[in-house]
């Protein structure tokens, strides 16, 4: 028997069953696309909140299923919902002022110093792989708005093309370009302040 589990026909058949009242059929869509949604969400939100946002994305997808027109593949449609959930996650947290801005510890400062003075690519890669690197990245991203953060993550961290990012976010290409430029500049300012702060501390010692 031909295995059609990976094709769009399989998705259409399952969606038809779900819309016909067979709710349990939705689980096979989760089996197929669960890892993809987890990957998208874990690129945007902290590890502690990944499950919560993945949960929200699938429930939202289920509720929106009657509106799915099959113009785009189901996986792509689901990715758009996942990206939107990530964006809403940061927007709600900012609106509710739930973001407690972290400060950098001595280990982070040491990491910054190490990267400043790194001379070989090998050492650079090793430094980039340290957990402090991820934490400093999070420190910088926390200081951006939900939109800036989402665009920056998609374009510069995940390497998604502008057109695709615009489509996933439901924004115009020009809007994404402008936002990306602004977000990059803000990020640069955060890094610059980080270095200036460090220099100031060193001078005062």
């Amino acid at each position: 028997m031909k295995d059609n589990r990976r094709g769009d026909d399989f998705d259409s058949e399952v969606i038809g069953r779900v819309l016909g009242g067979d709710v349990n059929a939705f689980e096979s869509l989760m089996e197929k696309y669960g890892d993809r949604v987890c990957r998208i969400v874990s690129n945007h939100v902290p590890r502690d909140y990944t499950e919560e946002v993945v949960h929200e994305a699938f429930v939202r997808a289920y509720r929106s299923l009657p509106g799915y027109s099959a113009k785009a593949p189901f996986g792509y449609w689901l990715s758009k919902i996942a990206v939107r959930c990530c964006y809403d996650f940061w927007r709600n947290r900012r609106r509710n002022r739930e973001i407690a801005l972290t400060s950098l510890t001595e280990d982070h400062q040491k990491w910054v110093d190490a990267v400043r003075s790194v001379e070989s690519q090998e050492v650079f890669e090793r430094e980039a792989g340290r957990k402090e690197a991820g934490e400093v990245l999070e420190y910088a991203l926390e200081r951006l708005s939900a939109g800036d953060r989402t665009v920056l993550t998609m374009l510069y961290l995940d390497g998604i093309p502008v057109k695709e990012a615009a489509d996933l976010l439901g924004w115009s290409v020009v809007g994404v370009k402008v936002r990306a430029y602004r977000a990059k500049r803000k990020m640069r300012r955060v890094v610059s302040e980080l270095l200036e702060e460090k220099d100031h501390e060193d001078e005062s010692r």
């Binding site: 990267v115 980039a128 792989g129 690197a133 991820g134 270095l195």
Partner: peptide
């Protein structure tokens, strides 16, 4: 802050993302 140093930190932060573990459902 030196422009070159800023770029170096930025590149390190971008590379940090590559080392992030991918989650599975």
């Amino acid at each position: 802050a030196d422009e070159e140093e800023i770029s170096r930190i930025e590149n390190a932060l971008l590379s940090a993302r590559r080392h992030r573990e991918t989650e599975r459902m």
